[in-house]
Design a protein around this nucleic acid. Structure first.
Lengths: 193, 193
DNA sequence: GTCTATAGTTTGATAGAC
DNA sequence: GTCTATCAAACTATAGAC
């Protein structure tokens, strides 16, 4: 698996070949068929690994989310996924796009992806008065920033810096307060900006 | 060129082959080399054509933009590009992503793309108090919606419907008024929503 | 489990006749 | 400009020895 990711990063996700992967672990190409049924099975294992690896980072993220600052929490959640996907083009292409002809993840490989999304949906909706469209817009914003990063500024931080402003805009549209709610008095308050 | 687009739409942009293109116009594959230097030259011509075709639609769009309603104008501009890119996956992939190994548009082919972007930038910035980050966010939103459409709902209208809400959010963040400014009195007014 | 050998296919591109 | 013929290379996958 490590060798597969290396080849994908060096030559591109579509340019992955059994020979290259095998050579990188000191084997011949046909020997890989002892471990994978086909080339697409390798892509499938990579897909599952990418989402499972991300899922494993979530407890660490959740521990850092401030319970009393939904606006900052939204930023940290978005930033977490952005960093994961913007830092690795072939991984992002495999996780979030469909550029491998004939590849469709198996149900088992798809499961971690579904869990991650449901976790995020619940988490985002708990931040405030968030409906399904708001959540979709949240995803659209993050995915859009990741795509523009890879397309226009793959080695820079242009879109990472835009992320803060993008999520401020989103938080405004949802009406998230920027600071903790006052201790006891009436809960109605206006956004600060 | 028409045959190339047909093959790309039926088999996928990456699955374009000289044999398929040639067969579709009743020729043999080698004969294409009279008209194109290489396979990448065909992609280059397709890239140029996609952006040039879009550029030609702009006068028609501009004629419909209401001069006294910047919020609606922003929506129409975004919607126009969304419709163009969401309606044709291989065209969108060629225009806005980098999934063809080794392909990089020539300077001549890239020129229409640059003109379109500069036209949009000037137009969007003229709507109100829009800075460069605002314009980047506008592009991120449209591109994000297009990508999510192709990834999650390629045959539906889920993200086309989100577009209105997305651009309302964006217009709010810029501070665009939703209705024409009052005739003569003080220009300060609050957004309606 | 790994190897060698190879089948079987597809592809982009070139040579040269017409 | 188009054709036939073909090259040269690359790839996935299988067969069968060890």
């Amino acid at each position: 698996m490590d060798a597969s990711w290396e080849v994908a990063r060096e030559l591109g996700l579509n340019q992955l070949t059994l020979r290259d992967v095998a050579a990188r672990v000191g084997m011949q190409a046909p020997s890989l068929y002892t471990h994978f049924d086909s080339k697409l099975a390798i892509y499938d294992a990579m897909f599952a690994q990418a989402w499972a690896d991300y899922e494993e980072t979530l407890p660490g993220l959740d521990a850092t989310l401030p319970a009393d600052n939904p606006r900052e929490a939204a930023y940290l959640i978005g930033r977490h996924f952005y960093d994961y996907a913007a830092g690795d083009l072939p991984r992002h292409q495999l996780m979030n796009q469909r550029i491998i002809p004939g590849f469709e993840p198996t149900a088992d490989s798809y499961a971690p992806s579904l869990r991650v999304f449901e976790h995020a949906r619940v988490q985002i909706c708990a931040l405030g008065d968030v409906d399904d469209d708001h959540f979709d817009l949240f995803v659209v914003l993050i995915a859009g920033l990741i795509n523009q990063h890879h397309a226009n500024d793959p080695d820079g931080t242009r879109y990472a810096q835009l992320l803060r402003r993008a999520l401020a805009m989103w938080s405004d549209s949802v009406g998230l307060p920027s600071t903790p709610a006052p201790r006891s008095s009436s809960s109605r308050k206006a956004p600060s900006r």
